[in-house]
Design a protein around this nucleic acid. Sequence first.
DNA 1: CGAGTAGTGTGACTGAGGTTACATCAATGC
DNA 2: GCATTGATGTAACCTCAGTCACACTACTCG
Lengths: 207, 207
Amino acid sequence: MELKKIFPDLYEENLRNVIEQEGTVVHLEQGEMLMDIGGFIKFVPLVLEGSLKIMREDKDGHELLLYYVKAGETCAMSLTCCMGDAQSNVRAVAEEPTTLIAIPVRYMDLWTNQYQSWKSFVMHTYQKRFEELLETIDGIAFQKLDDRLEKVLKSRVDMAGSNHLVVTHQELASELNSSREVISRILKQMEKRGMVKLGRNKLDVLF
Amino acid sequence: MELKKIFPDLYEENLRNVIEQEGTVVHLEQGEMLMDIGGFIKFVPLVLEGSLKIMREDKDGHELLLYYVKAGETCAMSLTCCMGDAQSNVRAVAEEPTTLIAIPVRYMDLWTNQYQSWKSFVMHTYQKRFEELLETIDGIAFQKLDDRLEKVLKSRVDMAGSNHLVVTHQELASELNSSREVISRILKQMEKRGMVKLGRNKLDVLF
DNA sequence: CGAGTAGTGTGACTGAGGTTACATCAATGC
DNA sequence: GCATTGATGTAACCTCAGTCACACTACTCG
């Protein structure tokens, strides 16, 4: 398996062996939900390919994008499950066709004791997600919607590795906890300024 | 020292001994800043008494309350410093006269290997702060200002252990990244509905 | 006691963004 | 081709909250 290439920080060979031994490879179609809010976390996902979208939802069904989990990463929320309540407070959806290794949570605590590289991987994950949550907070609290939309577009371009995005206004609106009309309005303004080129179900980012 | 009483989860006696040996007791006056954004983290604070206010600031100087660190707790941000960059991305200010033990960061990694209870304390801290950040995000993204203000008042009542709060409208406005006039306006409405009683530099919470 | 100062009250205005209500418009299937 | 459906464009309107301007009020300190 290409575990070594995708997760170079897990440098202990023994660790990689147990991961392959105890983990289950799972494949998700685009849009498939891996975990819903309130669901019980029974495993930790190590993403091999594709990406997961982690989001939060309020009582009225409004969504908000928290961050993406890409290849070589894992979800910080699921790491906390080894202690106390194992219920998820976020939703995880495959943003594209995605392959991951599911590790039963019972190994979490054990491995952090046994494998230095696993411990440091977990710690780094916490730190990274923490910073991302802080950025998300900055975005909502301090930035205006157009800036936030730009940021989402940029990050999608990065992930897709292409300026050509296949996405609807509605999807963008959901990620930003806004409404479709508002996003259409802002995108139109951006098009007038030459920042994007709009199409049906797609748009080209030009900045 | 009352370490055992305040941090009952650190059940290993050896651990408590090293903490007392290697840590330095620090006292902060109300309003004193422990750590500023961009500052270098050289120690982890274990709060013995009082509380720290952890906040974020944008480039224009607007502040936003993230969470409080109370007695028996520590700051998650400072835990991440043992790996990679040691610069703080938040500000920590004493909310009231506060006593804490400052642990040099070099012990962090060592202790998580050596003391099971320290490791689990660190993990629990991460989990707790994660949840609080998510709540903060919910607040900003989904709730209106009056709800958020109510929440802040409630949490201050809890901390003070009294319905009588000594605080100015300006302080509340800063915590919520809002403006004084708006908070005054909302407080006045709340007074009309009998939820609070207003005074100069103080207010009584009646809900 | 009078001046200065920090905190508070209030009204008018503004702008961002959410909502409503339609009008198109492009793909798809029949 | 034509109907259906989902995606997009747009205008009118409304609400919340930020800003400005200024009055007022309770302390403090010389």
